[in-house]
Write a protein that binds this DNA or RNA. Sequence first.
DNA 1: TGTTTACTCTATTAGATTGATAGGGTAATT
DNA 2: AATTACCCTATCAATCTAATAGAGTAAACA
Lengths: 136, 136
Amino acid sequence: MLSKKTKYGLKALAYLAAQTDKQPVQISEIAKAENISQKFLESILLSLRKSGFLGSKKGKGGGYYLIKDPKEVLMTDVMRILEGPIAMVPCVSLNFYEKCADCPDEATCSVNKLMLMVRDANLEVYRNNTLADLIA
Amino acid sequence: MLSKKTKYGLKALAYLAAQTDKQPVQISEIAKAENISQKFLESILLSLRKSGFLGSKKGKGGGYYLIKDPKEVLMTDVMRILEGPIAMVPCVSLNFYEKCADCPDEATCSVNKLMLMVRDANLEVYRNNTLADLIA
DNA sequence: TGTTTACTCTATTAGATTGATAGGGTAATT
DNA sequence: AATTACCCTATCAATCTAATAGAGTAAACA
C-alpha cells in the first residue's frame, strides 16, 4: 500500500511542477488545493527540501518551489525518498540491500526470484517517468 | 514491503510444489525446512486451504498438499490471497476498487496516473509466472 | 527597527497492523 | 481407543502511520 506521505508528496510535487511561474508557493495553498493536512504536509515538504528536490523561501511571499526542471525529476529518486526502497524485500534491493536472516540461499529462493522480477518491472516504470510526465 | 505472511506462504507453496510425490506434508516439516514459526505458518496454510490452493488430510500421515498442478497456479491469485490488492492505491485496483475520498478527479490525478502504470507492470509479472516457474 | 509572514523543528498521540504465541478443540487414521 | 495433526480463538508486544500541537527562527517589508 502506498503511504499517505508518498501520495501527498507526489501531489505536492505535481502541484509545484504545474506552476507557470517559478514563484514560491505557500504550504497552506498546496494543502488546501490538494486536501492535505497542513501540518503533515509541512513535514513532507521539509524532507523533500532536505533531499534536494525543493527549495524554500521564508518570510512574506515565501514558500516552496521546485529546484530542478520537472523533466529532470525521476520517479525512482522521488519514490526512494518518500516511500523508501522500491524492492519489496531487502534481499533484492539495489539501494537498501540486506540479507534475509531466515533464507539460507538467495539463488534458490523462490521469493527472491519472484521479487526480483517485480523490482525490475517497477524500476522500469519509475525510471521512465519524470515529474513532467505525471502532469502531462 | 512484502509481509512475512506472503513470504512464508510463497515459500510453503514452493516447498509443496517441489515434492516429487503427492503425499501430504506436515506443517512441522515445512516450518522447520523454511525457518518459519510453526503456529504462524498454520494460520497461513489454513487461509491457503480456504481459498482453494491447498488440501489437507487429518490424522496420522496427514498434512497439506497442493490441489492444482504448479503450472496452473498463477501468482496473481496467490498474491491477492496472501498480500491483498496488487495495486498500491485502491483507485487503480481491479479487484478492490475504491474511490479516493480526497481526490476530486482520477483522470487528472498524477498519483493515479503513476500507480496505474505500476499496477500494470506488476500484473504482467504476476500473470506471467506460476508456481512452477518459481521452483524451476 | 519592528512586525508580520511562513518555514522549521520537537514532541505527543490514537489507531491500525504485524508477527508471534498460547492453549485448547476436533476429526481422521491406525 | 489412542494418537496424530489439523483447526480455531484469543491475546500480546512491537512497530508504523497519520495527524496534531506548540513553540522557535529566519526573511521580507514598511
